[in-house]
Design a protein around this nucleic acid. Sequence first.
DNA 1: CATTTATAGTTTAATGTTAAACTATAAACC
DNA 2: GGTTTATAGTTTAACATTAAACTATAAATG
Lengths: 152, 152
Amino acid sequence: MNRYRGGKAERRALGAFVALSRAAEHAAVRTQGEFAAAGLTESQFGVLEALHHLGPLCAAELATKVLRTRGNLTLVIANLEREDLIARTARPEDRRYRTVELTGKGRRLIGGVFPRHARLVMRTLAALNGREQDELRRLCRKLGKAAEGGGI
Amino acid sequence: MNRYRGGKAERRALGAFVALSRAAEHAAVRTQGEFAAAGLTESQFGVLEALHHLGPLCAAELATKVLRTRGNLTLVIANLEREDLIARTARPEDRRYRTVELTGKGRRLIGGVFPRHARLVMRTLAALNGREQDELRRLCRKLGKAAEGGGI
DNA sequence: CATTTATAGTTTAATGTTAAACTATAAACC
DNA sequence: GGTTTATAGTTTAACATTAAACTATAAATG
C-alpha cells in the first residue's frame, strides 16, 4: 500500500537482497526434512558437519563457523552431548577451552546423513546449470566477504 | 577430517549452496542492528514490512509471505499487538479469519525504519555492481522458484 | 440435512537464538 | 607480583521457531 520509493540503486539492491534471502530460506526449508528424519535440527547438523569436515574444535570456533553466538553453542553442544553424538574434553594447557569432538555414534550419524544432504542440495541446485551455479557462488562469496568485513 | 567426496556436480552444488547460505546469513546479521535500534526483531520487521507494502492481511497470508508457520505468526502478531503496532479485527463474513493491519503507531514506525533499512541494504549490496546485482537476483529467483515448487 | 473435508487460528513442548551479565582462566602491563 | 585486559564458556530473560494436536468455522459431498 504505502510503498517507499527509493532511488534506482536502492530498488536494485533491495530486489537482489530479497531474492537472496528467500532463495536461502527456501533451500533451508527444503533440506530441513533430511535432518529431521535423522533426529537432528538444522543447528545440530551444522555443528556435526563442521566437526566432520574440520576435526575437533572448541565452542568459540564452532560459533564462528556456524555464524551463531557462543551462548547459543553452549545449548546446541549440550543437546548433542546428551544424545552422545559429541564429547567435550578440557584442555590441560589452557583450562578455558573445552575441545568438542565427534563420538563414534556421532561420526556414524553424520557420515550417513551428509551424503544424503549433498545429493539433495545437488537436486535443489539443478535448477541452475553448472555455469550459473559457479556464478551464484562467486557473487555470494564476494557479497559475503564484504558483509563480513563490515565497515558501513 | 573425514571429508565426503561426491561427484563433481555435487561439489559444485554444495559450493554454491554454502556460499548462498552464508551470504544470506551475513546480510541478515548486518541488517539486524537496524531493527534492534527500533526495538524490533527481524520477524517483527518482516511482518510490519509485509503489511506496509501489501496492506491488511490475515495471519495465514502473513505466514506465507514471511516463510514461517501459522503457529509462529500467532506469537509474533501477539507481541506486535501488545506494542500497539498492529491491530486484529474479525471478519464478519468468515469468522475463521482475523484481519491484521498496521495501527497509526505501527505505520509511523515502519515508515521511519524501512528507508533506513533500504539504504543499509544498498550499502551492503554495493560490493556488487549493478549488472552483478541483477544477475544475483535472477539466479536466486530461478532457484527459489524451483525450490518452492518442491518435487523431489 | 448430516457427514466429511478443508482451512484459520491457537496452544504446547522442545529447541533455537540473541544480548547481556556473569565466572574462570590466561595474557599483558606496570 | 598485582592490576588490567582479553578470551572461553555459562547463565538468564525474552523472543523465535517448528511440529503436532487442538478448536472453530466454512465448504463440499452424499
